[in-house]
Design a binder for these strands. Structure first.
Lengths: 113, 113
DNA sequence: TTGGCATACATAGGAGCTCGATGTATTGTG
DNA sequence: CACAATACATCGAGCTCCTATGTATGCCAA
């Protein structure tokens, strides 16, 4: 993404969303985000790890170290509070995009099948 | 908006979009944005005025003082460079929303009429 | 075997943007 | 006549994300 300000405020919500689908570790999240967005969102370690720590401190996610192919990985999972936060933030995001469209008229809609 | 980070990076683009429709002055822009978004985007003076100055410095908009009902107003209009920037930034915004949807699946679509 | 790359964690510092607060001044209204 | 709305402007605070840096392991190729 060229405009580095746009992604602000979305990192935490995206992490919660991914963890609501399955347990994941940090590096895996970075790669998953990059893949799903077709390389549009490329997060740096300095972006994700502090965000994960903050989410854990807030009790929205929980972590546990596990061994995979000899390397220790810190797996994160969504807590009940995290699920609530995800719902709330998804609503905020939806309102934001809707408001943005009311002026910019981006019309990010798919063709009917 | 509750999440104050979301609006980051969108102010300049929204201003360009509004000025592409008609010439406007600062205070008018604030009210127009508030009205069109149904109160979702409420910009403060400390948000808009520095943004306007930066856009003008960059040559994307031009200003001229005019008198309306005794009060001096600084009217802004889009320059040719501004129109180009608007097109580019609109594309960026569209890609951003699309990438966001690829993970969050907000589906901000309207019902067919 | 040794160098390089991907993997995997982490933190500190800097930069940029928006908001809150504050200031000035005029117009319209109750 | 006081107050709200209009209309401009700036400064400092706060938050987030990126760059840079550091550590360490596993794997593959030369």
């Amino acid at each position: 993404m060229e405009n580095r300000e746009l992604s602000r405020g979305t990192v935490g919500t995206i992490v919660l969303k991914l963890l609501s689908e399955r347990t994941m570790y940090g590096y895996e999240i970075i790669k998953e985000v990059e893949q799903r967005t077709g390389g549009e969102f490329i997060w740096k370690e300095g972006t994700l790890y502090p965000a994960l720590h903050k989410l854990e401190q807030g009790g929205l996610i929980a972590s546990s170290w596990e061994l995979a192919s000899g390397k220790p990985r810190k797996y994160y999972s969504l807590t009940r509070s995290g699920a609530k936060a995800l719902a709330a933030e998804t609503g905020e995001l939806r309102k934001f995009v809707s408001a943005l469209n009311s002026i910019m008229m981006l019309e990010d809609c798919h063709e009917p099948a």
